[in-house]
Every structure is written in C-alpha cells, then in structure tokens.
Design a binder for these strands. Structure first.
Lengths: 244, 244
DNA sequence: CCACGACAAGAGCGGTGCTCTCATTTTTGT
DNA sequence: ACAAAAATGAGAGCACCGCTCTTGTCGTGG
C-alpha cells in the first residue's frame, strides 16, 4: 500500500515534474515529430513530406502520429510557424549584433543579408513560407505574429531613422496618396505615407530578389550573388528614403 | 481487294493528312491531356494534380497516359513551358498594343501590368512557374526560351530607351562593378553595366511584388493593389534609369 | 482504487504514381 | 501485298500515401 502511494507520488512529482509524465512526453514527442519532419523537408521538399515516413523514422506507427497533428497540413502549418520564427530570429539577431550606433542603411542591409543567409541555409523552409502557399489561402491567425517579425524589424529601423531625420522621399503622385495613407495608418502611423508605401514595396521586392536566387532564376544570369544582393538591397534602402 | 487498297490509301492521304492518322491523333490527345491538366491545375493547384484524375476525365485508363508523358513531372514541365509562353505572349501583346511612340516608362509599366494581370487570371499557373520549383532544380533547356520572353522584352524596352538617350543611372560602387559588367556582357552588351545590373534586380523585384499580392502576403496590408502595383513598378522603371 | 481519458498499434479504405503484360492497330520495309 | 515492327490501349498489380476505426494498454484525476 505504501508502495503504490509512492509510485503515484513519483508520477506527479519527481519523475513527471509539475506536468506529469504524460504531458511531458507529449511535448517531447511533438518536437521530435517536428524535428524529423523538418529533416525530411530539408532533404526532399514539402511535396514529399510524408507522415508515414516520419512515423516510421520515429519508430511509431503512422496512426499514432495523428494524436499529435490532426493532419499533414497541420504539421506543415506548424513547420511554417517555426520557419517564420527561425527566420525572424536570425534577422533580429543580425540587427542586435551590430555596434550600437550603426546607421539605418547599415542595419537595413544587415537584416536583408541575414534573411538571405537564412534562406540559403534553409531553402526548402524558405520555399514553404514564401513559395506557393496555395493561392486563395489565408494564413491562420497563429502564424501572422511569427510571419510579421522581419517586417516589423524593417519598420522599426525605418521609424528610428525617420525620427532622427534621416529619411527623405519625394512626394507621391496624387492617385497613389490615398492608399499610401491607408497603409501608413494601418502599419506605422509614425511614418510619412510615402515612406510606409515604399517600405511595403521594398519588403516585397526583397523577397523577389531572394526568391529568384533560391529558386534558380538567376542561374546563368547572376554569378556573384552576394555582392549583387547587397548592392540591390542597398538601393532598396535608398528607395525607402534611407539616406545613411 | 479494291476496298483494302482504298482503306490503305485513306489512311495515308485523305483522313490522315501528310502525317498519318496516328501522329495527328497523338497531337490531339497530347493537347487534350494538357488542357484537362490545366483545368485541374486551375481548380486544385499543382499539388493535387493527378494523372489518374486526368485520365479518368478523358475516358482513358491511367496507364495509357504514360504513352504521352513519361511521368507526372514531365506533364507539369509541359504545363510550365506553356505557362511561360502564355505569360510572355500576354506581355508582348500589351507592348505591341501601345501606340507607336509610347515612352519607355509607359511601355515598362504596361508590360508589368500585363504580367500582373496574367498572374491574377492564372494564379496557380503563376505559382507553378514562380512559386517553389524544387530548390536545386535547374530548368530543362527547352523551358529557358519560353521563360526568358518577359525578360527579353524588358531588356528590349530598356535598350531602345538607351539608344535614344533616355536612360541615366549613377555610376556603380567599385565592388559591384565587375559583376555588373559580367551581367551586361552576358545579357545585353549594348547596355551600360549599371543599367544591366539594375534591370536584373528590377526584374526579380517585379516578381516579388506580384508574388506577395498573389500569395496573400498583402492581405490586410495593401488594399488598392492595382494602384499600389503601378506606383511600385513606375519607381522600378526609375530604378533602372528610365527617365520618361 | 477505479473509472476515465490519453495513447499506441493494427487493419483497412480509397487514392496515388508507375510498371508490366497482352491484345489490337497503324506504320513501314521488302 | 504482306509480314515484321512500332505505337497504342486496357488491365492487373506493386508500393506508397493520408486518414479512419477498433482494440487493448496504461497514466491520471476523482
């Protein structure tokens, strides 16, 4: 009788920690699944990611996997969120690693290059998030926070540059003003409308450059891709009005 | 006896034309397969395109389809080539439809808008060619001719603008010069290196803008996408040095 | 201590891409 | 003109896929 009490106690304190062994195991298995899936993703690409193969590799039967992810798409969604976060973190770290007084242009270029570097290191994950997310599909709310990290960082850089008077941009054509004002109001009210609009455009263009490099469109066209990219994103910085 | 001769004769002249009935049938069935595949692509996206479903819809058995396309990937490649051509044709027509003395900037914007319009009309086909073509994959030689059409058109516009002295761009930073010269030499020897390099960057950036719109990255960010796009590609034109 | 709920395992369903064999039909060489 | 050769279609079958359902086991909370 005392033994059984001991066992119960152990289950909810010593061995299991605060959550109990089961909750702990669930968490561990969940990340194991994601890790293995990410591994297969990096090798074969998203199209060939197979729940059965993941399960097989983990020594479990495929149906067991559905206790952790209700479908293959849900697994992919989880990988997407992780990828956004991984990329966002890389970008933020690149910015944070800069010496304190770094100029806005320097920060902008550093962040862009960090994004590129992340993409080069994780091409399939990049394809997963910026490739072809089924046209018509809108990301679940849980992803948008992670997805926005790089964008928010770029906004912050430009905002700070703005506040110290290091952003100048010619005024907008009349027909483009209203939408620019809308964008600025939604995205960064502190920014002049023409800067906010230019920033959104530059943001998209950055991923155009990177996508072309990663997806082979630059094959036999651009060779020295690092210098080409740096040159292009420097001009992008000028395009949003960053002057130093 | 005369009947058998007649039948033979018909087979190689009247009914079959110069090529024989079989070659003709092969051609027709090939396009029928591609049409049906394109139909399914437009509905469900590339991931769900299924040879069996195509065969079923065409009233043939799935194995018969392999007489026309050796694999699902080959079918997709054929669709890719057609998509590039369709898009290239749309762009070329938009340029050709302009009044004769249209300025380079006007032509540039018109071509970009035509590309956008094509993408909006064929989102899944756009995703097929500019989405995620398996990182590491290099397009078969047959596709590059079709893939280059829009690019060549943009080059032509800039070249003509250049010849009439309507292109000016600040000189390049030293470290970016060699690669710019390489690009110019390979792509358009008539163009100044800084223009050629800027053109390649603008080309990629155009697809960044379009991809973000088509793939939902602009959801809840940009609303008036047509005016935003036109504004952005106008600035892209300025970025390659087009002045009017 | 026990009933409940989380879990792993297995069988199974309908689908996929692709291969192989076999009969039929067209083309082609003599 | 006829037989050999090549092209085509049909069908069965293999291995794999995502996903569901049932069954038995084992932590866990009342």
């Amino acid at each position: 009788m005392s033994t059984s009490r001991d066992r119960t106690a152990r289950a909810t304190s010593a061995a299991g920690g605060i959550q109990g062994v089961r909750a702990r195991a669930r968490q561990e298995i969940t990340v194991a699944i994601k890790d293995e899936a990410r591994r297969q993703l990096a090798v074969d690409g998203a199209a060939k990611l197979s729940l059965r193969a993941v399960a097989r590799e983990l020594g479990m039967v495929s149906s067991a996997l559905y206790r952790y992810f209700p479908s293959r798409d849900e697994l992919l969604t989880a990988l997407i969120v992780d990828a956004y976060d991984s990329m966002g973190e890389a970008a933020e770290r690149a910015d944070a690693d800069l010496p304190n007084g770094a100029s806005p242009v320097t920060r902008w270029v550093a962040v862009c290059c960090a994004v590129r570097q992340w993409g080069l290191t994780h091409p399939h994950e990049y394809a997963l998030i910026y490739g072809s997310p089924v046209p018509g599909y809108t990301a679940p709310t849980t992803t948008i926070r992670s997805a926005a990290r790089v964008g928010l960082l770029l906004i912050a850089i430009v905002r700070e540059a703005c506040e110290s008077g290091r952003v100048t941009l010619p005024p907008l054509a009349d027909e483009a003003r209203p939408e620019a004002e809308r964008i600025a109001a939604d995205l960064a009210p502190e920014l002049p409308p023409e800067v906010a609009a230019a920033l959104v455009a530059a943001w998209a263009q950055l991923y155009g450059l990177l996508g072309f490099e990663l997806f082979g469109q630059f094959n036999r066209v651009v060779e020295e891709r690092a210098v080409f990219f740096e040159q292009a994103v420097t001009r992008l910085a000028q395009g949003v009005g960053l002057t130093e």
